[in-house]
Design a protein around this nucleic acid. Structure first.
Lengths: 205, 205
DNA sequence: CTTTTTTTGTAACGCTCATTACAAAATCCC
DNA sequence: GGGATTTTGTAATGAGCGTTACAAAAAAAG
């Protein structure tokens, strides 16, 4: 609670800022491609400080994943959950995705989880599990918003909320993949309206 | 044409097989994570042979990308293009995607382009361009199949073939992302039918 | 059988990697 | 101000990286 002054020499860096900078490096370079030199340079600290604060490179990576999953990766979800009108909400979700996958402050393109962590899921311990958690929790948060709208009568009773949640999230992976490959926001925004329609389309049959 | 005998000591390995094995290592480990030791062990050759045949690690990587893009990554497209009925064709596309993203012979999960090459697009020369080529060419091959069905009268005149092609391909990225995270074919096949419906749904208004 | 050509396996190259030992520096406590 | 405590920056560690030099081996050509 209190900002208790601690004995000893004070830290010369901000933890959250250093972690954000490290995330940017991982995002651009991948896990193995992010060397200690690149990391410490971006974070503005020396390696002993990094080790004292995060354990080692692997620990830093896991923290970066958690930090990203609860910050950047959540802004589209927050947009989806706060926008009152459901069509506007879905639109806002995709717009937020396009925004940070093409214009993130770090300069990295695409999505950190899809374009970097997914690669390490093949061989870096602990990452596949974090990825699965992120996927299932996102699926269910989207579904929850749809269910809420069904309750309100803004979506038909038979609206397949779970299926459409996965569809919506899977479409997102395609968009961030395009962003990673170098397509910019003007290339992606053209698809948004069609994707919104498909996500909210009345179930056939 | 002719299998002209060449002077000198004959090669002791098969080029295509070695390249396929290398692709599997890159797919699992990522570009930097795929060390020369892992590569040469999997390929069954020593590093001088690798350098003589592929130039260097970077050259091998680019060849692996091209090889994958014209082989594994194409089987869903071939399925889409050869299956006579359009609904069956779209279904076969997704089934082929699920098949190799969860059961590839190399043991790697997901899609090489999405789960590995996309990461290197951030920093490995020449990869972003290959990725963009793969995306645009896939978009247009899917669209071509839809256009063909419009001609035949099996899809309505106003069917938005270009939009649905991108939607279909973007949905695929979501599926292979799930596969990479560790979801298996039984988790993914449940979504297929809904995705087929969304891809082929009658355009609203 | 000798020469020429090409690929082989071994062993080395310099470099960069992640990690850490250590002493100087900066703060709080008494 | 002196001692305790924590972080700092420097510099070193051994291991592993991608790459290559080189000589032995295996084939065809003369």
């Amino acid at each position: 609670m209190s900002v208790t002054k601690k004995v000893g020499r004070p830290k010369a860096f901000d933890r959250d800022n250093a972690l954000a900078k490290a995330t940017g490096v991982f995002w651009k370079q991948g896990y193995e491609g992010a060397s200690m030199k690149l990391l410490t340079d971006a974070m503005g600290i020396n390696s002993p400080s990094l080790y004292a604060e995060f354990g080692d490179k692997h620990g830093l990576y896991l923290e970066a994943i958690n930090s990203y999953a609860t910050n950047d990766a959540c802004t589209p979800l927050v947009a989806l959950e706060t926008e009152p009108d459901i069509t506007q909400a879905v639109r806002a979700f995709f717009e937020a995705v396009i925004d940070y996958s093409t214009h993130h402050a770090s300069g990295a393109k695409g999505c950190f989880l899809v374009s970097c962590v997914a690669t390490s899921a093949g061989h870096v311990e602990g990452t596949a599990e974090l990825l699965r958690d992120a996927i299932t929790s996102t699926d269910s948060r989207i579904k929850a918003r749809f269910d809420h709208e069904i309750e309100l009568g803004n979506l038909p009773r038979e609206f397949p909320s779970a299926d459409r949640a996965k569809l919506m999230f899977d479409l997102r992976q395609g968009m961030v993949f395009r962003a990673r490959a170098g397509f910019d926001d003007s290339d992606l925004t053209g698809d948004t309206e069609k994707y919104v329609s498909s996500v909210l389309a009345k179930p056939e049959n």
